[in-house]
């Protein structure tokens, strides 16, 4: 096909383009994927029995504060990288800030505890299953985020895959907090973060293939 014919063809195909920002469209995909994850939690694990009281407690908001902050930072990073000329800038550092803060909080909490209390603070009673459940819950969210990102034009596919995995993991962790009754910072800093890191590393690996255009 001649290039001039192609241009005619594309011009004839032109439709007005929605003004919705990239962030907006990613957010819609998070809500969609997050609702699927929420249904999975409610059906398979059930909400924690004291949920009504827990949402008023500070440990619950420690968890949501951490995971929602990660969600916001990862969302901003994904939106930036979805543009072909988008560079990460300082956003990876912004993404690391909530993690560093909760690590500091965890160390303080361990520091003031007596030696005998430290292991239970760190391990709670669900340490080994928590990361895997978060990783499993991230699957529908990850899929919907990647699906949206594929419609844009990321050029740094590895980093975009990583950011998308972080985002999916963070939202999955937000949802998981509805079930999980752990309440210590050492637990969240370790096992929640591990659960978020699983899809993030997966994104690092599959990004170049999954996002290629």
């Amino acid at each position: 096909m001649q290039t001039s014919d192609l241009i005619e063809h594309l011009a004839a195909d032109l439709r007005p383009t929605a003004r919705h920002s990239i962030v907006h469209r990613l957010a819609v995909s998070l809500v969609a994927g997050g609702l699927v994850a929420l249904v999975l939690v409610l059906v398979s694990l059930g909400p924690r029995s004291d949920l009504a009281d827990a949402v008023l407690s500070s440990p619950f908001w420690m968890k949501w504060g951490y995971t929602l902050a990660l969600t916001a930072a990862a969302l901003a990073l994904c939106a930036r990288l979805a543009r072909p000329e988008g560079t990460p800038g300082i956003l990876p550092i912004v993404l690391a800030v909530p993690f560093l803060l909760i690590c500091i909080g965890a160390l303080v909490q361990l520091g003031v505890a007596s030696p005998a209390q430290r292991a239970p603070l760190w391990l709670g009673n669900s340490a080994l299953k928590c990361p895997w459940i978060i990783a499993a819950l991230s699957v529908p969210i990850f899929a919907s985020v990647l699906w949206v990102l594929r419609q844009f034009a990321p050029t740094n596919l590895r980093l975009t895959g990583f950011a998308a995995g972080c985002l999916a993991g963070a939202v999955a962790a937000v949802v998981y907090a509805v079930h999980c009754n752990e309440s210590t910072m050492p637990f969240v800093a370790t096992w929640y973060s591990a659960g978020i890191l699983i899809p993030a590393l997966l994104g690092l690996v599959v990004g170049p293939r999954a996002l290629r255009w």
């Binding site: 192609l6 594309l10 383009t17 990239i22 543009r83 072909p84 000329e85 419609q151 255009w213």
Partner: peptide, 28 residues
Amino acid sequence: VQETLIAIHTRRSSFDRSQPFTAWAYAM
């Protein structure tokens, strides 16, 4: 050239209206 024109067409929603056009097109 044609592949890039098609990418510009199908991925035009990745253009941020507050950002420069040429940087976007050359990145494509």
